[in-house]
């Protein structure tokens, strides 16, 4: 087994544990590289037939390409796709002028509504520890309360590969099978497995997106990396952080922390 095999095997183990313990589970797919990798791993974990729904939270501000991509692959891979939108907030015109309020209404609230509607008890998410300081605090199995609050000061212990296997009625569990992956690992794996990936990540006119979300809040980085090999090379030599192009991280030192304690993914 090589390094990527080890990453893959650990993630598959966690995905299977999560499904075994919490049958009412769904996977969150943002169409980005991390959750697309997670989706691939879920297909592998269950031998091609994912036994739970795949949820996409649509803010209405996503790149148009992302929606087309989502629909085309969910058909090809026979996914049980659920699209979650906070229609009321979209109608009320909430938008990126106030970033904290916008993320909270169109992402976090939309997710809460979707979870309540479908009665999901647990969610699989493709977050990684090296993305952002606060994400390094996460456990593989992380409980949230009804309001989605994350009590990071008093998290349950997680020993070896023994994960939280029960939950109270009030709890909702976030499961993070990619926690131990690094950004460059994701790309090495995408390359090895030939995972289809949206072309926003590849440079056009010397610019590419390193991290994608809503069109209005993502700015591309300067880059010549127009294929996977060049992206891997770029990541091995760069010294700026991955989310440097994401507006919600820059707004204030503590925005990400505030968003996360409110239930942001």
């Amino acid at each position: 087994m090589d390094y990527l095999d080890e990453l893959e095997s650990k993630s598959i183990y966690i995905i299977r544990e999560a499904y075994k313990q919490f049958h009412d589970i769904a996977m969150l797919w943002s169409i980005g590289k991390d959750s697309s990798t997670l989706l691939w791993l879920c297909r592998k974990a269950f031998f091609g037939k994912i036994p739970f729904p795949v949820v996409h939270i649509d803010t209405g501000y996503k790149f148009k390409k992302m929606t087309e991509w989502r629909d085309s692959y969910s058909k090809e891979w026979n996914l049980n796709l659920i699209v979650g939108r906070n229609e009321e907030a979209i109608k009320a015109g909430i938008g990126p002028k106030n970033k904290l309020a916008c993320c909270n209404a169109l992402k976090t609230e939309a997710l809460k509504q979707t979870i309540n509607k479908h009665k999901f008890r647990a969610l699989l998410l493709g977050i990684r520890r090296d993305e952002h300081g606060i994400r390094s605090k996460e456990r593989y199995f992380s409980p949230r309360n009804q309001e989605f609050k994350w009590n990071y000061k008093d998290q349950p212990p997680e020993l070896w590969d023994q994960f939280k296997s029960r939950q109270s009625d009030e709890e909702h569990i976030r499961v993070h099978p990619l926690l131990h992956w690094k950004e460059v690992d994701i790309w090495e794996y995408i390359k090895r497995e030939n995972i289809p990936i949206i072309d926003l990540y590849f440079a056009k006119n010397k610019k590419r997106y390193r991290s994608i979300g809503c069109e209005c809040c993502c700015s591309p980085i300067e880059s010549d990396a127009d294929d996977i090999n060049k992206i891997i090379h770029e990541l091995k030599t760069t010294n700026t952080s991955e989310r440097a192009g994401r507006a919600q991280d820059k707004e204030s030192v503590y925005t990400m922390q505030k968003l996360r304690s409110l239930g942001y993914m």
């Binding site: 520890r129 606060i134 390094s136 605090k137 990071y152 030192v253 922390q257």
Partner: peptide
């Protein structure tokens, strides 16, 4: 000590992984 509270109290609260 990435969290605000930790910065203010000056202690590390939870395990934290970095590469």
């Amino acid at each position: 000590d990435h969290l605000q509270e930790e910065r203010e109290q000056g202690i590390t609260i939870d395990t934290c992984q970095i590469f």
